[in-house]
């Protein structure tokens, strides 16, 4: 497989790399950059576990080729923890017990982050709508909604 050069910004850090043409953003993040917080649940864009924020929008990183991200800004779960502090969303997820096994959690938080950036005070229905593409098998979702809602409310 031929490789091509890729220049992009991930979590504020600039990277120049050679990646194979068929590498997805997910495998690039995990295998090349070692950012293993982003998880693969299905590899087919159906579960949202691999959600990252690409140029401000949430994407399934398993469905994006790494080379499509030339010049892009990517944010992963690793960007949430800043200066030794968990983000407001991360704290809310702990407060509301909004995770169990934790495998879908990084993708959940990134989807929620993208939602809150687009809509700082989402209603419960807004949250359901925006988060529908993120599957969780453990929680039954209500605690996740409560966590996201609380961040929206406290932002007011």
């Amino acid at each position: 497989m031929t490789t091509k050069s890729l220049h992009l910004t991930v979590n504020g850090e600039v990277y120049d790399a050679f990646v194979s043409e068929n590498a997805t953003l997910l495998t690039f993040l995990r295998d090349v950059l070692g950012l293993t917080g982003t998880k693969e649940g299905c590899g087919a864009g159906e579960c949202g576990a691999c959600t990252v924020i690409l140029n401000g929008l949430p994407v399934n990183s398993c469905m994006v080729l790494a080379l499509e991200c030339e010049g892009a800004e990517v944010r992963t779960i690793e960007s949430e923890y800043q200066n030794g502090e968990l983000s407001n969303l991360q704290q809310a997820f702990i407060e509301y017990n909004a995770f169990q096994c934790g495998f879908c959690t990084p993708g959940m938080i990134m989807s929620a982050r993208a939602l809150l950036e687009a809509n700082p005070h989402p209603s419960r229905d807004d949250i359901r709508e925006a988060m529908e593409g993120n599957l969780c098998r453990c929680t039954g979702y209500d605690s996740i909604i409560a966590a996201i809602e609380s961040v929206g409310v406290s932002a007011s």
């Binding site: 693969e40 992963t76 702990i94 995770f99 934790g102 990084p106």
Partner: peptide, 19 residues
């Protein structure tokens, strides 16, 4: 009492077998 695996799970640093 809050669960004690929160920080690593919400930060993506919890290590699963695939990691």
């Amino acid at each position: 009492v809050k669960r004690n695996d929160g920080p690593e799970k919400v930060s993506g640093t919890a290590q699963y077998a695939g990691d």
